[in-house]
Design a protein around this nucleic acid. Structure first.
Lengths: 201, 201
DNA sequence: ATCACATTAGAATTTAATTCTAGAATATGC
DNA sequence: GCATATTCTAGAATTAAATTCTAATGTGAT
């Protein structure tokens, strides 16, 4: 089934099992506090296997991070393509984020609470490429509305914080259990606030 | 100089030396990657001393976190008391944050990038008390303007993300070196956006 | 069947965190 | 000014975790 020198079929499954086990541990104990052995237990694999596929805890965390970010980004672009106005686009950015976090709270918690990962050089450049591609696409989508004068002209690096910052901040709050009101119930408020902050008037 | 059973004079200095050393290490290597020995080297103290005062790396990180948050909060309240209008208050929240982060980038980086600290129960409840006191004061300051109809009436837990979320998000960006434009240059934009998002219209 | 390589396993090693015991410093009561 | 209670400092000893390494096994290609 596979060519010489290529991974066999079961490999992707094994990787996924390890990633899932790691996410469960990270979520329960925190990235710093989970041990490689805990992941190994949960994934029912050997140390050797884990190190072979990911090179250690950092490697597992990196892979999980990249997988999560990619999924989040891909989903947004898909929904954004279907929007017809600046307002719809801005609202979609906020609402998609709220949806995604509500649906994958564990993964979201991991992405938001883990600025402590030490990516290996390759992971770092892969991430950089992902970000560039994604934000490039998003900016090119919104760009025309700024040109048409439907959105405020602002320093480019301020759009993302202004539009996404609040819902992200609230998501952090909700994910950490410090507020009960579900994202879905307040997402509209943030969508509205984001649009008010960037609409031309 | 000190009473029986009480810490001697040099103790506070020693604690500060250790905290400063830890901050430098955390900033250079990340919290997870710095070892207790690195902190000990930098602080020129013994393991015993470090464990005596803080009980370990987590303890040092907790103390640093509480110290940082307290300083940030105290500064804001001070400036807020001097404000006369809702708009001035909202702008002050944003601008003070920008100022503080610009002035203490290392400490700010530590506060923002360290959601991975496992606080001991006492530290946890101390933090909780600090937050309650602080946000209680801030909400009581702003409350009247909502009542007077000068600010929008919104779900209470959404004000902080809406007002502070964007500048916080941008601060993260700037602190991680992914953008060059200094906070001071864009702070006005965020202050303006925050006010637009919460003003009654 | 046999080869090349990916994969798995777990023992051995290395490295870091934490505990523990003892001694030095400090301020006070007498 | 000496006895004493207590804090503080030091670093060796211990424990726990991360990582490396060697050998064995599985898999598909030829």
């Amino acid at each position: 089934m596979s060519r010489r020198g290529q991974p066999n079929v079961s490999t992707p499954e094994r990787r996924q099992v390890i990633l899932a086990a790691a996410l469960a541990c990270f979520d329960e104990f925190g990235v710093a506090a989970t041990t490689v052995d805990q992941i190994r237990d949960q994934a029912r694999c050997s140390i050797g296997s884990l190190y072979h596929h990911f090179g250690g805890k950092e490697g597992v965390a990196s892979a999980l991070f990249i997988e999560g970010i990619s999924d989040l980004n891909a989903g947004l672009l898909l929904r954004l393509e279907a929007c017809a106005s600046a307002e719809e686009g801005v609202r979609t950015v906020v609402l998609h984020y709220a949806d995604w976090v509500s649906r994958q709270p564990q993964l979201a918690r991991f992405l938001l609470h883990s600025r402590e990962i030490h990516f290996a050089p390759e992971a770092k450049s892969e991430l950089k490429a992902i970000y560039q591609r994604h934000f490039g696409a998003v900016f090119s989508w919104f760009g025309r509305f700024v040109l048409r004068g439907e959105m405020k002209q602002l320093p480019p690096e301020t759009y993302i914080p202004i539009i996404s910052g609040p819902i992200e901040d609230y998501a952090r709050l909700w994910l950490s259990g410090r507020t009960r009101t579900p994202l879905a119930e307040v997402a509209e408020v943030f969508a509205e606030a984001a649009w008010n902050a960037v609409r031309a008037r």
